[in-house]
């Protein structure tokens, strides 16, 4: 049978997907063991045991200076910033994207503004945010919002604009007003697209979060990674990166599931 026709069932798919990950882990352990055979004090590729030990201290032992469990404090701070940023961006994408997409005069007025903001590299705005909002939480959340909201707004607005003209004409012949069209025709069809835009924005959102934390913070996953870098503490950096990757994958998975559960109609065609 030709490769393009080969079907992979669920169990085999999981197994095949796990193979490269397992291969990568194995390659790491072999390389780490080789380095430790040459130099038992090697810090660049720590052995799994060393990583567990370092992380155990962060997970279960309170920091003598602050009295906090550092890993959990970092996780909580980062998730709070990310959650706030994502929520604000999603809500504004829904509201702004909806009116921008559905109402031509609004699109003509504010479309260019959104485009102008979207083309500015958000990191270039970070100094301005720190100057305006100070070094606290606001600037970090604002960076995430400014980083992802314009893309999400444009995506949602574009999707609404691209709804077939026939649908709008049909709604009008059924007696719908502009408000009713926004509420019953545009909004429900924008929601699955919003979920998709949010899912694709998770990656950039993490980038902006880590960048903001690396530059000015006293707690957070990104802050910790950049702090312990000074001591070549790969035994902390690598588990932290793994935690970030796992969280990102979990969010992606949950959003996909939620979209399928909530907007079944949008996934009928792709089945």
């Amino acid at each position: 049978m030709r490769w393009v026709n080969l079907k992979v069932n669920r169990g085999a798919g999981l197994l095949l997907g796990a193979l490269p990950l397992a291969g990568l882990a194995l390659a790491y352990v072999i390389a780490a063991a080789a380095r430790h055979a040459a130099n038992p004090a090697d810090k660049i590729l720590p052995l799994p045991g060393a990583m567990a030990e370092a992380m155990g201290a962060l997970l279960f032992n309170a920091d003598p200076l602050s009295g906090q469990l550092l890993f959990w404090a970092d996780l909580l701070a980062s998730l709070q910033r990310l959650g706030l940023g994502l929520s604000i961006a999603t809500l504004s994408a829904l509201l702004v994207g909806l009116v921008l997409g559905a109402l031509p005069p609004v699109r003509a007025t504010f479309g260019p503004l959104v485009t102008a903001i979207a083309v500015i590299p958000p990191i270039a705005l970070l100094p301005i945010l720190f100057i305006v909002f100070g070094l606290g939480e606001t600037a970090k959340v604002a960076l995430i919002v400014i980083g992802i909201a314009p893309y999400m707004i444009r995506d949602v607005a574009g999707h609404i604009t691209a709804l077939p003209r026939e649908q709008i004409a049909k709604a009008l012949t059924l007696g719908a007003s502009s408000w009713q069209i926004v509420l019953r025709i545009a909004l429900p069809q924008a929601l699955p697209r919003l979920f998709e835009a949010l899912r694709l924005s998770l990656g950039p959102a993490w980038v902006f979060l880590i960048a903001a934390e690396a530059i000015a913070a006293d707690v957070g996953l990104g802050y910790r990674i950049f702090l312990v870098r000074r001591y070549l503490a790969m035994d902390v950096i690598l588990p932290y990166v793994a935690v970030i990757a796992l969280l990102a994958m979990l969010m992606d998975f949950l959003l996909t599931r939620a979209s399928r559960r909530l907007f079944g109609w949008a996934h009928l065609a792709s089945r």
Binding site: P164, E166, Q167, A169, K170, A171, T173, I185, P188, Q189, F263, W265, A266
Partner: peptide
């Protein structure tokens, strides 16, 4: 005036 187009006359989310 009611209308039926060749395509896209119905709302996919309803």
């Amino acid at each position: 005036r009611g209308v039926v187009f060749q395509r896209y006359s119905v709302f996919p989310h309803m």
